[in-house]
């Protein structure tokens, strides 16, 4: 038996700690706990208000259940064969459609969708040149810095804040929302696309260059085919995000369904709230499914 083994036998074994320095480790643990206690303790909780609010919460949950039922009835009327539904009701008479038309959900939703599409298209169109400019292996230094600062600015500014500023300048309406979303798309898409271009296979791009291709041809044949699948995937993902964001821009007056939602909350009309939320969830699910299918096809 070796001496090293003998020294260890009979001694307890402990897993070596994640942070080796004990002082630093205990400072970190103690600091975290202290922050947690102080931060949590600093939150005002008004139990009276919560007890009162629980009634609203209950109403919301019931409303959501009811609206979900109405939505289910509508779908099963729409596709009777799929659900084995033999009632033969006209789907247009359903409660779901009634809520939709009565509260002008359709109008707000329509505006949200329009804003989403327009801003995604414009955002992508602007993102592509900026992404090329922000890829360090393609762009010269001054262009690189310029494009990177546009991206940084777009990422640092929250959509809602941009929307507030734009509404102050342009007035209420979907134009402010459209510009907000286009601008936010640039920060997201151009950054990820630029990273993708920076990570692309150099040999393929060099092979095209070595044939004597011009800069435009080089981008077209050497770079574009490599980043195209990712561009399509990211665009679909951004379409999804833009739709979700468009639903809240209305809170600050920048168009879309958010305004309807805000009014409904102010008036405690929880059935309208539930109908809008359900619609948003369903549309997001459909968009996610579609983007999954499209991404599967291009890759």
């Amino acid at each position: 038996m070796s001496a090293a083994l003998e020294a260890k036998l009979g001694r307890a074994w402990k897993k070596p700690p994640f942070i080796a320095n004990p002082v630093f480790r205990w400072l970190l643990i103690g600091g975290s706990i202290a922050y947690f206690v102080v931060a949590l303790g600093g939150i005002d909780v008004s139990w009276d208000r919560i007890v009162k609010g629980m009634a609203y919460g209950k109403r919301f949950i019931f409303a959501f259940g009811e609206i979900f039922g109405a939505f289910y009835d509508y779908i099963s009327d729409l596709f009777p064969d799929l659900f084995g539904n033999t009632s033969g009701r006209d789907p247009n008479d359903s409660r779901w459609i009634e809520i939709w038309t009565e509260k002008e959900i359709i109008k707000g939703l329509y505006e949200s969708i329009v804003m989403t599409i327009a801003s995604t298209v414009v955002g992508i169109a602007i993102s592509i040149p900026i992404a090329l400019g922000a890829a360090s292996n393609i762009a010269p230094m001054p262009v690189y810095l310029f494009c990177r600062s546009i991206i940084a600015l777009s990422r640092a500014l929250n959509e809602i804040i941009v929307a507030i500023i734009l509404v102050a300048i342009l007035g209420f309406g979907p134009l402010a929302g459209f510009i907000t979303l286009s601008f936010a798309t640039i920060g997201f898409l151009a950054k990820l696309l630029a990273e993708d271009i920076e990570n692309m296979n150099k040999q393929q791009a060099e092979a095209v260059k070595s044939t004597g291709a011009s800069w435009g041809q080089w981008i077209n044949f050497g770079v574009q085919p490599q980043v195209m699948p990712r561009l399509i995937g990211l665009s679909m993902y951004r379409l999804d995000i833009n739709f979700r964001e468009s639903a809240v821009l209305g809170l600050v007056g920048a168009g879309g369904i958010g305004a309807t939602l805000n009014t409904a909350f102010d008036r405690y009309e929880f059935d309208t709230v539930a109908a809008i939320l359900l619609t948003i969830i369903v549309i997001v699910m459909i968009l996610e499914y579609l983007s999954g299918v499209i991404r599967g096809k291009v890759q």
């Binding site: 939150i43 005002d44 909780v45 919560i50 609010g53 629980m54 609203y56 909350f265 405690y268």
Partner: peptide, 8 residues
């Protein structure tokens, strides 16, 4: 609308 305005 449920727990009232505030950090919570």
């Amino acid at each position: 609308s449920i727990v009232g305005p505030g950090v919570l």
